[in-house]
Each structure stands twice: as structure tokens, then as C-alpha cells.
Design a binder for these strands. Structure first.
Length: 416
RNA sequence: GGAGGGAUCGCAUAGUGGUCUAGUGCGGGCGCCUGCUAAGCGCUUACUCCGAGUAAUUGGAGUCGAGGGUUCGAAUCCCUCUCCCUCCGCCA
């Protein structure tokens, strides 16, 4: 959520920033509703002040004047009517504010689509292969480690079953990633609910706008998380943290569930885009001054996994048009997959500034007696499992159709 | 799933219709005292919103789990919901 005071004081700044995303937003009606709401609020408060004062006097006086009580009753009715209007205006204002995305950080390259993203660095070079590399769906089927038909049999399109070494390879990757983030990067591991309350989705920015992409249980109003970012953002909802506790660094392995309505038709082959997938997620809560630096560290932590797996990758900074709703700055990490001959997005690392903190009401005190202010939140995959699995299978495949195990995974995968 | 109990300031508690402008203790902060430490003493210590002021500051409104109701007036009475605890049942 953007600060209404900023919109009020400098609407042009906000308008310019948001326009870089390539959409138009209803700033004018927000300003109008804000003005309307505040004038109602002022009236309500004035009447209430008068009401409070008289009521107090009445309490202290010995004889209760019936006329005065009648007057007060009438005033009370006026107040509750006005209060109702004020509440409605506020609700309308808030619902408009919740639809506004974050403002891109000033340094983010302006652009409309993927072509305008800027590759900031790359690591490793795709191996020269003496044979034609297979895509993972063929490799996986031949080796009997990915079964697409059984996935469809159980749950329909965009589901698959990992079997034997396929399942074990995924599990090895998860353990390996968690261990690196714990031991080398100093994150704290957390185990999280995969279903959360509606308000959690609003805090992270996934509701009200993106309900289409979420699975939802009607009976208990549980929402299935599309990423661990959702529960992680809510871990400290409505809290005031001490400056000394920052930054908080969390790592979590969770399943993720996405309807993928928007991308109907895209990537239907293989395991690149399913309705359910696993992800190791990195998350940071920082003070405002350190969030930019911490984003660089977070990306470096995710990259470290790629390097240890010895898979070529590149890092791109997203242009303004590609930024997610809550993000003000994002780096994508893409691993090279020779079989399907494409760069696979295995991680998206974002600084959300105070956008989520404002929605989730997460604050901190710089000094023990200082006024609380909003923290910054950052998130990034470290990394997304199916795509790393693809990259490993396709990069480590041999001419005879077998696949080698990356050295770092050997301790996790004693093949017998 | 059934029955009962509960939710008050960071924590623990007091508060059953107007003097609650929510008290007290602990914890935190600032200061004093003191060879050091401990102790002691004094002061202080919630958040949000609207307004005035360049600012320090200041006026008002709201918040005792959430929402609604009764009342001139609600932490206190009533209703609904959420969450927590205890017991029973079921269960990995």
C-alpha cells in the first residue's frame, strides 16, 4: 500500500512513478475520496467532542435535565449517521488504495516487457555438447523418474509424479539449499502453514487483485499459498520490532499452489509450470536504510546455489513494466537449460520497500523511545525446485541418456 | 465434533454503568546516589487518525480481541464472530 499522505502531498510524483509500469491508475478519485473522507471525519469528531463534554457534565450534575438528555439523544443519532458515512468513505478509500501497485525504485530501467529487462551479470558458459541434448520431459520419462501420465491421472493437466531418483533428487536439492542458507548465509529455517487466512493474502499484496490465481477453500476460508512469501510476510504482522532484532533472515521450504489461469497454454510440456511446486524461499525484514544493500546480499545468496550446482546462469534486473505488484526493484536469476534451450527463471528477488509492511503493519523502533516506523521487506526464491531440477537434469545429461549427480548433492544422494 | 473458561498498555494483573484522563507490579528508558557490582531514590514509558505550527510543541477523536446493540454516558450490560486454554471424543 502506498502512503496516502504522499499521494496527497505530491500526487504528480506518484503518478509519474506508477505510469512507468505502463498502466493508468485512478489517483484522482483516490484524492477525491480522501478529501471527502477527511471532511466527514472532521465533522464527526467535532460533534463527538461536544457530545463527550456535555455527557461528562451530565454525569457530574446532581439533577439530570430531561430536555438535555433528549437533546443528547438526538445528537447521538446525528453522530452515528455521520459515523456510518465516514466509515463507508474510509472503506472505499482503502479499497482503492489496495489496488495500487508499489512505485518502482527510481533506478529501475523503464520498459514495457521482458525485452527491456537488463542482464546485469552472468556466470558460467553453456557446455559444448557432442550430442543433441534432450529436454527434461524426454530424459525424465526415459529414466522413469518423471511420470506425466500418472500426474494427469491423479489431478489433471499440469500435474506430474516424481519417482525414485527423481523424487530423491528433488529432496536432495531441498536439503542442500536449506543447509547452504543456514550454514553459510545465516538464515533461520521456518516451517510454515501452506493454507492461510484471507488477511494474510491482503498483507502480502496477493489480494484483492490477484485472487484469480489462488486456490481457496470455501468452507473454512483458507487460502493456499502461491509462495512462502505470504506466510513469511505475516509472521510479524501488527508487531513493533526493536532495531536490534533487524535484519531478520528467514528461509522456508514450502509447497506453492497457483491456478496459472493467466498463462493458460504456455509451457504445457514438462514440469516448468505446474499448479503445485516446491520452493525454498529467502525472506528479509530490514530497516529502510539497509534494504537496498540487503537485496544485493539476497541475490548473492541465491546465486551461490547456482554456482555450487555449477549450472550457468544470468541475473537480470526487471524493467518497470515487469515488476510484480508489491516490488519496487527485482532481480531475476535464470539458469540455462540446454534441452529446452531456454533461460529458466529459478528465482525472483524483490525489494518491496515499505509496501507490504504498510499493509501488514510491521514496524520497528530505531531507538527504544523513538516513534515506530515501517520496516522494509524482501523476498526471493533460493531456489524454485522444478526448474532447478530441469536445469540439473538437462545440464548433467550424458550422451548415453544417463544423468550425473552434481558433486554438492552427493552427500544428500547416496545412490545404491 | 461436545462441554466449560478466557482475551485489559512489552509481560503479569486490578477494574461489574459516570471520580477510568484505565490503577498497580515487573520489564524498558533517562537521571541521581554510589570505590566497583548489587541495591536504593526520582522522573518517565502504548498506538492510530484528523487539525494548528518551519519546528520543539499543541488541540481533538478513536482504540481494553473484532464487529454490532442498549444508554445522555460502556473495559463494565446484551448479541454475533475470531482466537486461546481446559476436559471429553476422534486421530498422524
Amino acid at each position: 500500500m502506498l502512503d496516502i499522505r504522499l499521494i496527497r502531498e505530491d500526487p504528480e510524483l506518484v503518478r509519474r512513478a506508477l505510469s512507468k509500469r505502463g498502466d493508468a491508475f485512478a489517483l484522482d478519485s483516490i484524492l477525491e475520496f480522501d478529501e471527502h473522507y477527511r471532511s466527514l471525519l472532521r465533522q464527526t469528531e467535532e460533534l463527538r467532542a461536544h457530545h463527550n463534554e456535555t455527557s461528562k457534565k451530565l454525569g457530574l450534575s446532581r439533577e439530570k435535565s430531561p430536555q438535555l438528555i433528549a437533546q443528547m439523544r438526538q445528537l447521538g443519532e446525528q453522530i452515528s449517521a455521520l459515523q456510518q458515512q465516514t466509515k463507508e468513505a474510509k472503506a472505499k478509500l482503502d479499497s482503492l488504495l489496495l489496488e495500487l501497485p508499489n512505485m518502482p525504485h527510481p533506478g529501475v530501467p523503464v520498459g514495457a516487457n521482458e525485452g527491456d529487462n537488463v542482464v546485469v551479470r552472468s556466470w558460467g558458459t553453456p557446455k559444448e555438447l557432442s550430442f543433441k541434448p534432450l529436454p527434461h520431459w524426454e530424459l525424465g520419462e526415459r529414466l522413469g523418474i518423471i511420470d506425466f501420465q500418472q500426474g494427469v491421472k491423479l489431478s489433471g493437466t499440469r500435474f506430474y509424479v516424481l519417482k525414485g531418483l527423481g523424487a530423491r533428487l528433488q529432496r536432495a536439492l531441498i536439503s542442500f539449499m536449506l543447509d547452504v542458507h543456514l550454514n553459510e548465509h545465516g538464515y533461520t529455517e521456518v516451517y510454515l502453514p501452506a493454507m492461510v487466512k484471507r488477511e494474510c493474502m491482503a498483507s502480502s499484496g496477493h489480494l484483492p487483485k490477484f485472487g484469480d490465481n489462488l486456490y481457496h477453500d470455501e468452507e473454512d476460508d483458507f487460502w493456499f499459498i502461491p509462495t512462502a512469501e505470504v506466510p513469511l510476510t505475516n509472521l510479524h504482522r501488527d508487531e513493533i520490532l526493536s532495531a536490534g532484532s533487524l535484519p531478520l533472515n528467514y528461509v522456508a521450504h514450502t509447497p506453492c499452489f497457483r491456478r496459472e489461469k493467466m498463462s493458460a497454454g504456455a509451457d504445457t510440456r514438462g514440469i516448468k509450470r505446474g499448479h503445485q511446486f516446491d520452493k525454498v524461499e529467502l525472506y528479509k525484514v530490514t530497516d529502510p536504510a539497509s534494504s537496498e544493500r540487503e537485496l544485493e546480499r539476497l541475490v548473492a545468496d541465491a546465486e551461490n546455489i547456482c554456482r555450487k550446482l555449477a549450472v550457468p546462469y544470468r541475473v537480470a534486473e526487471l524493467c518497470t513494466g515487469e515488476l510484480g505488484f508489491a516490488a519496487c526493484k527485482t532481480y531475476d536469476i535464470e539458469m540455462w537449460a540446454p534441452g529446452c534451450a531456454e533461460w529458466l527463471e529459478v528465482s525472483s528477488c524483490s525489494n518491496c520497500g515499505d509496501f507490504q509492511a504498510r499493509r501488514a503493519n510491521i514496524r520497528y523502533r530505531a531507538e527504544p523511545s523513538a516513534r515506530p516506523q515501517f520496516v522494509h521487506t524482501l523476498n526471493g526464491s533460493g531456489l524454485a525446485l522444478p526448474r532447478v531440477l530441469i536445469a540439473v537434469l538437462e545440464n548433467y545429461q550424458q550422451a548415453d541418456g544417463t544423468v550425473l549427480i552434481p558433486e554438492v548433492l552427493e552427500p544428500y544422494l547416496k545412490v545404491t
